[in-house]
């Protein structure tokens, strides 16, 4: 489903020094997989995730999403892929605080150009209810606990029925009990909804939820 071929990401610091966030990485992620990308901070795992999630482009190398080479598609098409194909879950939750929980979850549908096969409000309400957030729909995200906010973020990621969820240190801001609850939720989505999950983490026990672990150090897959 996703294939990275010799992907490098370089940052030119000055004329003498170039920093490689990613060096000739080759990664392939298959449909319905649960993969974790593990490495210490600064290892390039977030860069890898941003490239997989189409938020960033590699300096060299090729990225294929559903057999399409992303350097050949337009910015609008990338936006559409992010909208319909990928769901993001971030360490910082990244909810928009001036929008209510319900509005946050429904936000991706606003940017969808195609006809939806579901009613946005109904679907958002259904997911939030399943996540135990029934009473919080009209609250603002900053009034919720970390665990609740992360659940809202996952609900938002699920809204467009994505094939892939990218979770960037989703438990990083949560206590370990809540963290494991979130992980179990992701695990369930992988098992029951057959959604591909790519998880970025530096914690071994969190990475253990995945069926496959890709280790990265200093920008290189090891």
């Amino acid at each position: 489903m996703i294939k990275l071929v010799n992907v490098s990401k370089e940052y030119i610091i000055d004329s003498e020094y170039t920093f490689y966030a990613l060096k000739k990485a080759n990664v392939e992620i298959k449909e319905k997989e649960f993969v974790s990308i593990m490495g210490p901070s600064g290892s390039g795992k977030s860069t890898l995730m941003h490239i997989i999630g189409l938020l960033d482009k590699p300096t060299t190398g090729k990225v294929f999403i559903l057999e399409r080479e992303i350097s050949k598609i337009t910015d609008d098409q990338l936006s559409t892929l992010r909208n319909e194909f990928v769901g993001f879950v971030f360490q910082q939750f990244n909810l928009i605080n001036k929008l209510t929980v319900l509005e946050n979850v429904m936000l991706p549908t606003i940017y969808c150009r195609k006809e939806l096969d579901f009613d946005p409000t109904d679907r958002a309400v259904e997911i939030l209810e399943n996540f135990g957030l029934k009473g919080k729909m009209n609250s603002y995200p900053n009034k919720l606990s970390g665990g609740q906010q992360q659940r809202v973020a996952i609900a938002r990621a699920l809204m467009m029925k994505p094939k892939l969820i990218l979770a960037d240190e989703p438990t990083g801001n949560l206590d370990s009990k809540t963290g494991h609850e979130i992980m179990m939720l992701l695990e369930k989505l992988n098992k029951e909804e057959k959604i591909t999950i790519v998880l970025v983490t530096h914690e071994t026990d969190i990475a253990a939820y995945a069926k496959r672990v890709i280790k990265i150090r200093d920008g290189e897959i090891v």
Binding site: G53, L55, D75, D76, S79, T80, R82, N83, E84, F88, N94, L95, I96, L107, P108, Y111, C112, R156, M160
Partner: peptide, 16 residues
């Protein structure tokens, strides 16, 4: 800026 980043991540186009 952060909000713009979030919106872009969930599929907003430049034109949006």
């Amino acid at each position: 800026i952060k909000e713009i980043g979030i919106r872009r991540a969930i599929g907003a186009r430049k034109s949006d």
